[in-house]
């Protein structure tokens, strides 16, 4: 890799490199929000934590830890059987 230019000037915040980095930020935010919405929708439709976890490709513990409190606040009757 070529070394970065030595001047201390800040790069253009809307230049090509900044656009790609901003896309990463926007995609992460979108993925987070879509996950919140999609998990909630599935749980409202009666999916179990294990089913949601399997569909997301993560462990049941991970999905439970991330969403349990939020969905309890939402008053969703969480399925405890068929976990």
């Amino acid at each position: 890799m070529t070394p970065p230019p030595s001047n201390q000037q800040s790069p253009d915040p809307t230049g090509a490199e900044a656009d790609d980095l901003a896309a990463v930020v926007a995609l992460r935010e979108l993925a987070d929000r879509l996950e919140d919405a999609a998990v909630e929708r599935a749980m409202r439709a009666g999916w179990s934590w294990s089913q949601v976890a399997e569909a997301l490709g993560v462990t049941r513990q991970a999905v439970h830890k991330k969403h349990h409190r939020r969905l309890e606040t939402a008053g969703i009757e969480l399925r405890r059987r068929n976990v």
């Binding site: 656009d19 790609d20 901003a22 896309a23 995609l27 979108l30 919140d36 919405a37 909630e40 939020r70």
Partner: peptide, 22 residues
Amino acid sequence: RALRAAGIEPVSDERLHATRNS
């Protein structure tokens, strides 16, 4: 604009509706 830079169209707020993380 940032999403379009990655070839993604914005997703409607309706599809992103969720109970908030407090």
